[in-house]
Nucleic acid binder design. Structure first.
Lengths: 247, 247
DNA sequence: CAAAAGCAAGAGCAGTGCTCTCTTTGTTGG
DNA sequence: CCAACAAAGAGAGCACTGCTCTTGCTTTTG
């Protein structure tokens, strides 16, 4: 499949890529709100109407960028995961892998704030995300699922307690996404995922200004706590809470 | 202060309010991206240039709406907190208060998704939030700080362990926002705050579509775990993790 | 080789944010 | 009390946007 049949088709994919590249450039410079089809066309030396041969509307261009962004961050997560699996001399512990992947996502977000805003900020085009985005969007999730499955298979997990009313939902979610995992950890995992994005979003969107200064250290601590919530075991033994004063 | 000096000043505050009301209406209908000064003016029966007597630019109108939204969600949180403090026959436990406030924030978000997106989605106008927003933005935070301080004063807290590298930052944050709290809980509290918003954002922005169905139950469980992370004590005794299989 | 399909160019429409000028209308000092 | 002043609305206009339509040109295809 995907054999290029002639000069026309070759030109088409090149122009399509050029449009997306230029759009990404403007996105990084001014944000999604100021991305203009006419400006993209102008910069590429073509007239604005010609651009509609490639993308039927501005929103379609944006969703193409969204899909690419999901793929890029998913790629970053998968790469970090692979790297954390073969560190000499021994493979990293599961907690360390979890932290490594989370840090990779954060670093991608710091490097591409506007693309990050495109996928995890307010949805700009309409209300519901187009169907085309759900595949790439879930790549990240499966990386974390993989880590926890791995931990479950080898070291075991500290399965968190589960409210009775949430049990059927947990079993449905487990059947859908992680059949090998104890149902109780799946909601915790999904929650941890959204909470990880919450942490990153607050940093990217400036909510931590004048609040958190040591961003990296703060993030690592929070992410480790997240992993503990999911049930990943800590190799260190001293992670017991101390009781504070009280009346 | 704030005495109305004449018909002119009275008209001014009325028109200003009318503009914001109409803008909020359009915001709720079509989202921030499609909010148009001209449409607001048209709906109010005035010409667009007249509107610039009240707001010097579209962005200024938006930041006014942002401030109002922060205030509204802060108000919702404070109201829920007060209500949870005097439920008969005994005042609710601190964990229950935490959950009540979190649920109030979530419900406000569900009722006003576009206003929520305005404050916790991608920042639309520029990069940095205007100084005017930081006050109203922190109202919510102080509600949660208050709950934890209260718990510390009466029942005590399960102070979470703190990485050594984060200790100076924790002490600085504690000195700035919660001098009465053990420094170790302050980063956990800030993290929990951002993670709470992460949970709500995922639901509002559709990231939980086809993933989480029982949204309310899922949210309550996640928020209770968040509270436990911060150190709030659970009155129930059965919250110990069970160890899963392993190899 | 001719028909068909893909593509670029240009004009044009409706809408936007924002800036001018001009007139009207409240407020206020002499 | 009335003239000087400042605030407010009206309207025209500029530069820009997304998008559509028609008109030629070029590549592909039967």
């Amino acid at each position: 499949m995907s054999t290029i049949r002639g000069a026309r088709e070759r030109a088409r994919i090149e122009v399509t890529a050029a449009i997306k590249d230029e759009a990404r450039k403007q996105l990084a410079a001014d944000g999604a709100a100021k991305l203009s089809l006419r400006a993209v066309a102008r910069e590429l030396g073509m007239v604005s109407s010609a651009l509609y041969r490639y993308f039927p509307s501005r929103d379609e261009l944006l969703t193409a960028l969204i899909v690419d962004a999901y793929d890029a961050v998913g790629e970053a997560a998968e790469t970090a995961h692979r790297a954390s699996c073969d560190v000499p001399p021994v493979p990293a512990a599961h907690l360390a892998r979890w932290i490594a992947v989370a840090c990779a996502v954060r670093e991608w977000a710091l490097a591409h704030p506007h693309e990050y805003a495109l996928i995890y900020g307010s949805p700009v085009p309409g209300y519901t995300a187009p169907q085309a985005t759900v595949g790439p969007a879930s790549r990240i999730g499966f990386v974390f699922i993989g880590i926890v499955e791995d931990a479950h298979r080898t070291d075991g997990l500290a399965v968190p307690p589960l409210a009775a009313e949430l049990r059927p939902e947990a079993e449905r979610m487990a059947a859908d996404f992680a059949p090998d995992l104890p149902p109780a950890v799946v909601p915790a995992l999904v929650a941890a995922w959204s909470q990880l994005i919450g942490l990153i979003s607050f940093e990217i969107f400036g909510q931590f200004n004048r609040v958190v200064e040591a961003r990296e250290a703060f993030f690592r601590q929070a992410v480790a706590d997240l992993a503990r919530n999911v049930g990943l075991l800590d190799d260190r033994a001293d992670r017991t809470a101390t009781r504070s004063a009280g009346a």
